[in-house]
Nucleic acid binder design. Structure first.
Lengths: 169, 169
DNA sequence: CGTGAAACCGTCGCCCC
DNA sequence: GGGGCGACGGTTTCACG
């Protein structure tokens, strides 16, 4: 099962770097309770194994002038794999689309979009998204406010889960 | 207007740190074309001004055993501000909820959730979310796959916008 | 904003368990 | 296998021009 090859120190490293990705290695080593060299080796291993995909500054999009955030629910005409891939490729090319998730249920895709203002978004919506080949329907909802936006996963839940698994060895 | 107090170097710094949050300051300085000390001063200023909210390692949730990702659309009974705040507070307390956006339109909130497996999510859904006070309806959609998930904002769009504004001085 | 210097950190080789 | 020690080169971060 996934995650089973990580020990407690690895999970603490991931939790710390998820909370503060610019932490120095010596500070990280101090927090997880080992010295710097093995700590750095573990971080490199976690990066190469794909547990850590990268590090990003979390920029404030509204401060930067992207005042509009929109979720778009997209239905397609054809859900054949080739047609899904074509649509996903377009989403990757559209800079205003930041996330593209394929869902089960009534709607095929959920897109998270940002834009500097409503008219920019409307141009994108009418000229690109809605008029794209194979798109059957688009329903959009403006984000009024964001009450929570934390990255990654809840490590508390992971730890609890590990403890349960250990009890059931 | 927001973002107008940043010059081109500041925007390049933000773009670089969004792409690679662990870049060293000397590398960053080289890329934006200034020397290290003023570059670090700019980064600190951007952090204090709130343009940079933090730095995070981007961990692979599926590799870590969070195999279930769900979007939940929540309708409330009352949309009075006090009741909205209460619900948002609960979302902040629920570790499985990673994002909570208030939307316009038919649904009041869109939640992004993660869970180790379906039964964990179902317990949360039935025992916590659906049975929470003031919650009228919950519709959930499982994420089948994620075609795109890039953090932050498209700086290409910002630069284009700045050029347009400069032409219209 | 740049230069120089001092303190700190990332990183490696080696030894240890 | 992993962790610790010591040392070198690069980096962060001052004070100052």
């Amino acid at each position: 099962m996934a995650g089973s090859k990580l020990d407690e120190i690895d999970r603490k490293i991931l939790a710390e770097l998820q909370a503060d990705g610019r932490m120095t290695n010596v500070e990280l080593a101090k927090r997880v309770g080992i010295s710097a060299p093995p700590c750095l080796r573990r971080v490199r291993t976690l990066e190469e194994a794909g547990y850590i995909r990268g590090y990003h500054a979390d920029v404030d999009s509204r401060e930067l002038g992207f005042e509009v955030q929109v979720f778009a629910m997209v239905g397609l005409v054809s859900q054949a794999e080739a047609d899904l891939s074509v649509f996903e490729g377009k989403c990757r090319d559209w800079p205003l689309v930041r996330e593209c998730h394929m869902l089960n249920g009534e709607v095929d895709f959920l897109l998270k979009c940002v834009a500097p203002d409503l008219s920019t978004f409307q141009s994108f919506l009418t000229e690109e998204l809605t008029s794209a080949e194979n798109v059957a329907s688009v329903k959009t909802s403006l984000v009024i406010r964001c009450a929570k936006d934390v990255p990654g996963v809840p490590f508390e839940v992971l730890e609890e889960r590990v403890r349960q698994l250990e009890r059931g060895l």
